[in-house]
Amino acid sequence: MTRDMILRGRLWVLKSGENLFSDIDTDMIYHNAHLAVTEIEKMGQFALGNLDGYKDFAVKAQPGDIILTGDNFGSGSSRQHAVDCFAALGVQAVIARSFGAIYKRNAINSGFPIMELPGLPDNLFEQFDEVELDLEKGVLSKGEKSFNGNPMSKVARDIYLAGGLFQYAEQM
């Protein structure tokens, strides 16, 4: 996996009606019926499998895609599967207005890039926009339109560049 600070890819905008989908909990991302799975490569097929409107996400997603959602993404349980299922599909990053606290940790520790864009308007970006995500600066953009969010924290950046918490620990 590359460790670029600038990512480019196709944007999946998760919406509920006209608004960015908020409060997507870990059972919607990765249902508890599949928690016994421990191999990451087998988790991709269940990604968003319990989210209304996106149950076929795993079939339609392409490696390199970037996900955009609303507030409190990944609330609920502590399951790492809810991060790993996206990595398994080759999804490059998840962007949200805000994340559930445990989800945020899990993503950071597994070296999976996430970006918080507090206050992002619902309709600034559209489904399948080809976007650029600057992790260093915390900016999501497509051509002229862009939105500034929170830059990656130092801990998150160090762990991301190392490739995960254990790899980071080896460098300490």
């Binding site: 502590s78 899990n106 254990f166």
Partner: peptide, 29 residues
């Protein structure tokens, strides 16, 4: 790995549910 381990706040202690990478790290270090 239980997301309700912050139940420890009930007795004025700190507790936190975390994913398996974090917990493995805590076991080791």
């Amino acid at each position: 790995t239980d997301s309700h381990l912050n139940i420890m706040g009930s007795v004025g202690a700190f507790g936190q549910g975390m994913g398996d990478v974090d917990i493995a790290y805590a076991f080791k270090t």
